[in-house]
Design a protein around this nucleic acid. Sequence first.
DNA 1: GAAAAAAGTTGAACTGGTTCAGTTTTGTAG
DNA 2: CTACAAAACTGAACCAGTTCAACTTTTTTC
Lengths: 206, 206
Amino acid sequence: MAGLREKQKADRRRRILTASSLLFKQSGYQEVHINQIAECAEVSVGTFYNYFKTKADLLLSTVSMEVEEVLQQGDSILKDPPEDPVEALMALTRLYYDHSLVYLSKEMWRTAMAAAIQEGQSPFSIRYRALDKGLCAQVCGLLEVLQENGRLSADMDTRAMGEVIFNNLNAMFTEYSIDETFTLDELKDRVLRQTRAVVKPLIGAA
Amino acid sequence: MAGLREKQKADRRRRILTASSLLFKQSGYQEVHINQIAECAEVSVGTFYNYFKTKADLLLSTVSMEVEEVLQQGDSILKDPPEDPVEALMALTRLYYDHSLVYLSKEMWRTAMAAAIQEGQSPFSIRYRALDKGLCAQVCGLLEVLQENGRLSADMDTRAMGEVIFNNLNAMFTEYSIDETFTLDELKDRVLRQTRAVVKPLIGAA
DNA sequence: GAAAAAAGTTGAACTGGTTCAGTTTTGTAG
DNA sequence: CTACAAAACTGAACCAGTTCAACTTTTTTC
């Protein structure tokens, strides 16, 4: 166990992650070349590719952290959601959106999204979509809780409705990431209006 | 007008489009190199880049054709939509989906989507998003017509609701494009269920 | 119709992510 | 401790999209 080899491997991996994180923040994802990351992390280019399949794969480590954190925080909202369904959904939405820029810039999100779409069978894409599925399941879960609490009509299809609401969240976030002038507040306002339009009609019956 | 120069320009452009269209169908987008397109079109690589900013830009010409055609066909649905709102929306949806593979493969859609996300300020991305906006407006337009016909509750926010429905359509199409095993029929089934979940509650009032 | 200007063409060189054959380091067996 | 095998490291070379300085063709001017 904890042989020299293992120790060095963990150390190198951490050095690469630290270096890239620093450089990306400094100069942006596109501007930073693998050479620079390798140099800054004191490994060779070849070694970089021993630890990460591609440059985009490096991003995924960060995206994963970001989403896993947000999923965990989201669970605490599910445990005791606001009574009003629109408020409950917006609480989750705000959590997702506010957290989105902690580790990643808009540019990094764009790159990650584009890479996830580009080749669907790559491990990158599969993992990214699994994270998305987790978020979608959380939205569906929230609707179920609200339905159980009698805040949403009992015959609502929580699964289908949750998918629609999540897909909308996601699409709006994509739009936000693409447009550098689109602010977080504008994003939340637009999504609030959309969420209202979809959810209001469901509130009546218990 | 019709000077020699103009004539040659139009001819070269057409040759490039014909060549690329043929090659893409033959071998897929990624497999085809600019060299091959240039050779097949009997121009130099440099000339290719005189006519198209990037390889992805070439795709956009095709995407544009595809979307403009579908927009036009969609208008005829708006003129006399099915009475049932779910049916009306699904008529539009089916039109979009069935038309999607006439000119473009899944791989080409993925590439176009990824490129549109990648750099938001490029002419490519701006034009692609304008097309998306056109489709979104058409969905909103359909909801308006249905509302005017008294098939949807009068206080519905057609704009917000249309955006949500379109974003869902689009997200599901993206998922479909990413996953080579996802069939058109499965796609339509899932979107039907989602559309029902969102639209059913709105049908009551006039 | 010749000369100058404008527009367009060309392909070799560039760029930056990725690979791989050769080398070094680490672990293991005798 | 030595010899061998396995694992990991290395950077020069590769690849495919893109650029650009030199060259050709077309148009305009006189």
